[in-house]
Design a protein around this nucleic acid. Structure first.
Length: 535
RNA sequence: GGCCCCAUCGUCUAGCGGUCUAGGACUCCGGCCUUUCACGCCGGCAACACGGGUUCGAGUCCCGUUGGGGUCACCA
């Protein structure tokens, strides 16, 4: 834990200067990995400054069931430990936090914009607009709306309405000069106003669009810092225009680089699963997760069971802290060597100044390496609790579990050591939970190790020793086997593999003697007998 | 295509004019450990996109080229 108290105590006293950030998901039913990274940076920035983090739901264009589609997103944040001070389920002084319920605020803003002459009613049809666009393209010049169907007086309105036209409301954007602002990540940026379009802010049916809603909400919610993905950078001029036209002080902006696809340079997207599966590392990540899902008897839907979606990691048994640690390093770093950050350390050290400008590729290998390090640090008791639900879902353990299960699982986890990298990996050790007569054999391994000359007699000879061994633990079984191979004048390899296959059904697993000890004498003897009798 | 953004090992990054024959992490490749697998340990490969400036000195500043990307909706 390096560093110390860095924050300036005097700044904390000024509540009026309190940092307030927000993340504004659309209720789509899933939490995108890139979205989480953005939310995390907002959360960290707020927490670092002893500020507040707000969740706002951008559902202006949603006809579907918002509640149902929102739940997985909220669950995802809860799992990750990214908590919000205001928003759905927790409420707050600026409620409601759903854009679909704030239309009165937007209508009011549109009226003020109209009054101020910063917006106008436009009666153009989409065909007419398309025609203008086409002409512009033919003449190889930038398209800017002619404002031919702009109605600024009641007379204009009446005239157009008589023609049977309906109006939308457009921003009356400046056509000269430059929009300059300081971006907390990218520095000074500028756009010339002349290329900005007169964006629609209110549809013909009266509903309002994102840019307007977003600016109004950010002001209402007293958002001080808008930290969002880079693709919003071109949206910033029009949003600043809306804010200033409304007489509001625009918030600070920080545009984060996007998260790039594995092995590529484009923005990562949940729809390109098939493409990413061609990437070796991503495929491995996905297949490892799929195997766990299959062992759980889960039907996997491409919609959520996808490493681009956060649910994937939760379902498979990744640690939230590990995911967060991986994500925070995607575009941010503290120094030239620190890789591991607890939640508190992230909060303590995070700053926008150290956010990178260039996109960061999603690297499945590094994620898995981070996860492994975190798993290694989990204390035994907690690991048991982590793993137990997986055993229950796979019906290897009943729920509630019998009382001997806890110690047994702890024993297995200790023996398995780093082999359990995510909680779901426990399912690779099903042999410790099945009945002796239900053990399945890996046929290839059985063929190679047991169906060979001398294997069965050796196994049975050693079985006789195990039968009378006292006590029956890893130390004594190892000593017994070493004495046995010496007495038989054979090498370890000549029996140990057969023994493993006989008692676990598999060619690989945890240490041989740990395996024997965990299984216990009765199971070992029964399984050796069963394997030797098998043809 | 217009506008905007970006550019250090395969990947994530350190580097804010001299301490850089460019550091760390992941991956990869050797080796060790070893009853399998995993872990662990030791070692190794590997980068400043290119061209001009500025400067005593440039990965670091400026310009250009190239390359990559984002964005151009009555989506968010």
């Amino acid at each position: 834990m390096s560093g110390g108290f860095q924050s300036d105590p005097t700044s904390l006293a000024h509540c009026s200067n309190m940092v307030r950030t927000r993340f504004a998901p659309s209720p789509t039913g899933y939490l995108h990995i890139g979205g989480v990274r953005t939310a995390l940076f907002n959360w960290l920035y707020a927490r670092h400054h002893n500020g507040q983090f707000i969740l706002r739901i951008d559902d202006t264009d949603q006809q579907r069931n918002v509640e149902a589609a929102l739940q997985p997103i909220l669950d995802g944040f809860r799992w990750l430990g990214i908590d919000w001070d205001e928003g759905p389920e927790v409420g707050g002084p600026h409620a409601p936090y759903y854009q679909s319920q704030r239309s009165a605020r937007y209508q009011g803003a549109v009226a003020r914009l109209l009054d101020a002459g910063c917006a106008y009613r436009d009666f153009a049809t989409t065909d007419e607009l398309a025609a203008e666009r086409e002409v512009a393209q033919k003449e190889k010049r930038d398209f800017v709306y002619s404002r031919r169907w702009m109605a600024e007086t009641p007379a204009d309105v009446a005239r157009f309405e008589d023609e049977g036209r309906v109006a939308v409301v457009r921003l009356k954007m400046p056509r000269e000069g430059t929009c300059r602002f300081h971006d907390l990540v990218r520095g000074d940026v500028e756009f010339s106003w002349g290329r900005e379009q007169d964006h629609v802010i209110q549809r013909a049916d009266g509903t309002c669009l994102y840019h307007l809603a977003s600016v109004v909400d950010d002001a209402d919610f007293e958002i001080t810092h808008v930290i969002r993905a880079e693709e919003h950078l071109p949206n910033t001029p029009r949003q600043r225009f809306i804010a200033t036209s409304l007489g509001l002080e625009p918030p600070e902006f920080a545009h984060l680089p996007y998260v790039a696809e594995p092995g590529g340079t484009q923005k990562i997207s949940k729809r390109k699963l098939a493409k990413y599966l061609k990437n070796r590392d991503f495929k491995e990540l996905f297949e490892h997760g799929s195997a766990i899902a299959a062992a759980l008897g889960r039907e996997v839907e491409a919609d959520t069971f996808n490493p681009v979606i956060v649910d994937f990691y939760r379902e498979v048994g990744y640690l939230a802290d590990a995911l967060l640690n991986y994500l925070v390093l995607l575009g941010w770093s503290l120094d030239d060597k620190t890789e591991d950050f607890s939640r508190a350390e992230m909060v303590q050290h995070f700053s926008l100044e150290r956010v990178n400008k260039s996109p960061a590729g999603f690297d499945p290998q590094k994620l898995r390496a981070t996860q492994m390090r975190y798993m290694q640090a989990v204390p035994s008791k907690k690991k048991v609790a982590l793993v137990l639900p997986y055993l229950q879902q796979a019906r290897l353990v009943t729920s509630p579990p019998p009382c001997e299960t806890g110690p047994r699982v702890a024993q297995i986890l200790q023996a398995a050591d780093d082999r359990v990298k995510v909680a779901g990996d426990i399912l690779e050790f099903g042999e410790f939970f099945v009945a002796d007569d239900a053990l399945e054999f890996d046929e290839k391994a059985f063929e190679k190790r047991i169906r060979k000359p001398n294997a069965t007699p050796l196994l049975l000879a050693f079985r006789a020793e195990l039968a009378v061994l006292e006590p029956f633990d890893a130390v004594t079984t190892e000593a017994a086997l070493r004495a046995f191979i010496e007495a038989q004048s054979i090498k370890m390899g000549e029996i140990i593999h057969a023994l493993r296959v006989a008692v676990t059904g598999k060619a690989v697993g945890v240490g041989m003697f740990d395996t024997l000890a965990i299984l216990g004498r009765d199971s070992c003897l029964a399984r050796i007998d069963r394997a030797c009798a098998r043809e």
